[in-house]
């Protein structure tokens, strides 16, 4: 049984490295195989066995066929490179019903943005922990993928300094991240995907075509999915500032239908393009949400 730390508790811990460690600790138990596959070595040529060569590199089948002992040579040994792309638009700064004027109310789920940061930190920790390279593209910051603890710290520091504001050019961020991955790598995108759907999808498709593996985390709050408010509410668009007074009871059905269609469209398109897609709701502990995604990768 894996213990999970509730999202509201994680949201209250300011040390992002600690948060990442907590999440990863609750995540890796039960994952017997690594969920991320690197490109550790590529075969280059055979050469005659020389004394001192590691016997594990001897091609025994060839010995049987030719009666000569050859050793396999590898051109290079590489690790996996992953890029975290985090949506920093103002729409991510939404807490749901737990929101008060001052910010998050005690005991409420974290904002979508904080959730994305925590999940990104956990993923970075996990990837770095298995010796792979991890980079970050978020809020105008770019950290090229590298391995090692020092770099992990830099990634976590960059994540901790991010702020959700204004709009987010998702397509440009994805294009930049994909282009900066030198070799085939893993593109982890965490967003609500409210921005230009078609352009974003087009860039994701392009990244996938050039060989990157694409994993999408669509992060939403429960309130965005269900519109649970009663009677009249005056909604203010976090990105545009536009205001709209609605009778939530009357608008709910049309709204939830539209949101469901939007989510289904992303799920269907991601499946069609070969992306790994996961809808993450902020009231689900990050460990559980990431664990489901990673288990799916392990069993894939």
């Amino acid at each position: 049984m894996t213990s999970t730390c509730p999202p509201d508790v994680l949201a209250d811990i300011s040390d992002l490295e600690l948060v990442a460690r907590i999440v990863v600790d609750g995540l890796v138990s039960g994952l017997h195989r690594s969920p991320f596959h690197g490109y550790s070595a590529e075969f280059s040529q055979y050469r005659h066995y020389q004394q001192g060569d590691d016997l594990k590199h001897v091609d025994w089948k060839l010995v049987a066929r030719t009666d000569r002992v050859y050793t396999k040579q590898f051109r290079e040994t590489t690790n996996m490179a992953a890029m975290l792309v985090v949506d920093t638009s103002a729409s991510m700064d939404f807490y749901g019903a737990g929101r008060s004027i001052e910010g998050r109310a005690p005991g409420a789920a974290p904002s979508k943005f904080r959730y994305a940061v925590i999940a990104s930190a956990a993923l970075a920790h996990l990837i770095a922990g298995q010796g792979d390279a991890v980079g970050l593209q978020a809020g105008g910051r770019f950290l090229a993928p590298r391995a090692g603890r020092q770099h992990l710290r830099a990634v976590l520091t960059a994540l901790a300094s991010l702020e959700a504001r204004d709009t987010w050019q998702g397509a440009d961020a994805i294009r930049g991240a994909a282009e900066r991955l030198k070799r085939r790598g893993l593109l982890l995108v965490l967003s609500d995907f409210y921005d230009d759907e078609e352009r974003t999808l087009s860039e994701l498709r392009r990244a996938h075509r050039i060989g990157h593996e694409v994993v999408l985390f669509q992060i939403l709050t429960r309130d965005e999915i269900e519109l649970p408010y009663r009677r009249g509410v005056e909604l203010t668009d976090l990105e545009t500032g536009r205001r709209l007074a609605i009778d939530a009871g009357l608008a709910r059905r049309g709204y939830t239908d539209a949101v469901a269609a939007f989510l289904e469209r992303w799920r269907r398109r991601a499946a069609a393009e070969g992306f790994q897609y996961s809808l993450v709701v902020t009231d689900v502990p990050p460990q559980r949400a990431l664990r489901n995604v990673l288990l799916a990768r392990v069993h894939a």
Partner: peptide, 8 residues
């Protein structure tokens, strides 16, 4: 009508 910030 309760004012409420909303993502979109």
């Amino acid at each position: 009508a309760e004012p409420l910030p909303f993502p979109t």
